[in-house]
């Protein structure tokens, strides 16, 4: 019992640190997980690849999914809940502090100017993230790396995925009220029916 409570405390402390120092999104948590696994017996490094696969193939922020999975493996349901809460706590505090500062400078010409140029950059970064998904799921660039032949160009496209991509985009443009959830569910159904 005492040992279990200690594990929970350690779990919270370690994920608190990961939440405080992992900058740049969910996958930045991975090195912290390896580090934890190396130092404690309650977390096995062998589960990390599964953890990443599950984190990426289930809904929700990847970093949160990883923390929940690791916490569950280390200490059951209480571990899952506490590891996740410990992970998000520091960033919550940081964001609240940043919000207070931004509020103070809301009308500031300088802050306005800075965000004016940040916005196009953020737009580009999201476009790049979309490109990363597109270039692995809808088109396959490795097909043309063998050479620019007609067959290779043709092999570059996954026909079902390409049609689905175009149809989803058209649908979201035509029916503005259509909820993204409906499109995601339709995508899952098409994927299963056509064995994508």
């Amino acid at each position: 019992m005492v040992e279990y409570l200690l594990t929970l405390l350690m779990l919270m402390w370690e994920f608190f640190k990961a939440g405080l120092f992992a900058i740049g999104g969910g996958l930045a948590t991975i090195p912290f997980i390896y580090d934890i696994a190396a130092r404690y017996s309650w977390l096995d490094a062998a589960i990390v690849p599964d953890m990443i696969a599950i984190g990426e193939s289930t809904p929700g922020p990847i970093g949160v999914n990883i923390a929940t999975y690791a916490g569950y493996n280390a200490a059951g349901v209480p571990g899952a809940v506490l590891a996740t809460l410990a992970l998000v706590f520091p960033s919550m505090v940081v964001i609240i502090l940043v919000s207070k500062v931004l509020k103070k400078f809301a009308e500031n010409r300088f802050v306005d100017g800075v965000f004016y140029t940040i916005r196009p950059a953020v737009t580009a970064m999201i476009a790049a993230a979309g490109w990363t998904v597109l270039s692995t799921s809808v088109i396959d660039l490795s097909a043309v790396s063998a050479g620019w032949s007609f067959e290779n160009l043709l092999a570059m496209f996954h026909p079902v995925a390409l049609v689905l991509f175009a149809a989803a985009f058209a649908a979201s443009k035509i029916w503005k009220k259509l909820h993204p959830i409906a499109l995601i569910a339709a995508g899952a159904a098409v994927g299963i029916i056509f064995k994508m």
Binding site: R119, V133, V160, L164, S172, K173, I184, G191, F194
Partner: peptide, 25 residues
């Protein structure tokens, strides 16, 4: 299979989101 389908849709949704961001940013 379901995830492969979802990914294709997510690309379309992200493209849409980028267009909206482009318009206001």
């Amino acid at each position: 299979h379901a995830l492969a389908g979802i990914r294709a849709v997510v690309c379309a949704l992200i493209l849409n989101a980028v267009i909206k961001f482009w318009k206001s940013g």
